[in-house]
């Protein structure tokens, strides 16, 4: 089977000289639920943002669907981003706009600029937005302002927005880091359903190892911009844990 995504010797140096990624290589197969772990500042978020090219890598290459997307620009870049959904730690919804509008914004990549600005989304997009809200279980919230929802509900709206893109790949950057434990599991189970039922590949940054063991099919660990572990979530022994998180770290459970 061909990998969906191939990352080779990826480095990224920020303009201020900080080296966030130092030669990362890995493959992602279609249908995987890949989790990236590591301390804050280890390069997880930077890596994720290279994959949908919110950031441009310094050297190395990223191949998606057999296409080199490392340095694409303009129209090609927008098409690439539109194929990849993304959700964020702070949800990043447009606060004053309604839930359904926020979901529709997932279709911006496929909507002509002027039509979108006039609020004209295609009938197909309108229908799929309703469906996406059904999938995440909050169809009744469609007309409510996004910032009046709870954190967990906002994250579900963000997932619905990502689903609007009909993504081949879903990126999740610390999706549960600002949620409480029970809501965390609810959001993670939506990601799991999208992964299993819609066969969407998921790459997710996580902090809690208990969540990693429950949801990941494979794990990558970063430390100071380098990949220090790659394997099954059950292979993360205490020694690996100490290597990834430092000698003094104690594992925290979330149930």
């Amino acid at each position: 089977m061909q990998p969906l995504l191939s990352v080779r010797n990826l480095t990224l140096t920020y303009p201020n000289g900080y080296q966030a990624l130092k030669g990362i290589s890995f493959d992602v197969m279609p249908g995987e639920f890949l989790v990236i772990i590591g301390l804050s500042g280890s390069g997880k978020s930077t890596l994720l943002r290279c994959l949908n090219r919110l950031l441009e890598p310094t050297t190395g290459s990223i191949t998606f669907n057999d296409r080199d997307i490392t340095h694409i620009q303009g129209e090609a870049l927008r098409e690439h981003r539109a194929r990849i959904g993304m959700i964020f730690q702070h949800f990043n919804l447009i606060p004053r706009h309604s839930v359904i509008k926020n979901v529709l914004y997932g279709a911006l990549g496929a909507t002509p600029t002027l039509n979108a600005m006039l609020g004209r989304f295609s009938d197909d997009a309108q229908r799929r937005a309703q469906e996406a809200l059904q999938v995440v279980g909050i169809p009744e919230k469609a007309e409510i302002r996004a910032d009046s929802l709870s954190g967990g509900q906002q994250q579900r709206v963000a997932i619905a927005r990502a689903l609007m893109q009909q993504p081949q790949l879903l990126l999740a950057d610390e999706p549960v880091a600002s949620l409480d434990p029970s809501t965390s599991h609810s959001v993670m189970s939506y990601l799991e359903r999208i992964n299993k039922e819609m066969n969407t590949t998921v790459i997710c940054n996580l902090h809690f190892l208990s969540l990693v063991r429950q949801y990941a099919t494979r794990v990558i660990a970063l430390k100071n911009g380098e990949m220090v572990f790659q394997g099954s979530p059950h292979d993360i022994t205490d020694e690996w844990f100490a290597t990834i998180y430092g000698e003094d770290a104690v594992e925290v459970e979330i149930r």
Partner: peptide, 21 residues
């Protein structure tokens, strides 16, 4: 900057990012 990232990530054009984010 969060919404700017989120709207950019949908493949929106520059003008769309200004207008929606």
């Amino acid at each position: 900057s969060g919404p700017i990232e989120a709207i950019s990530a949908t493949g929106a054009s520059r003008i769309q990012v200004l207008w929606f984010a």
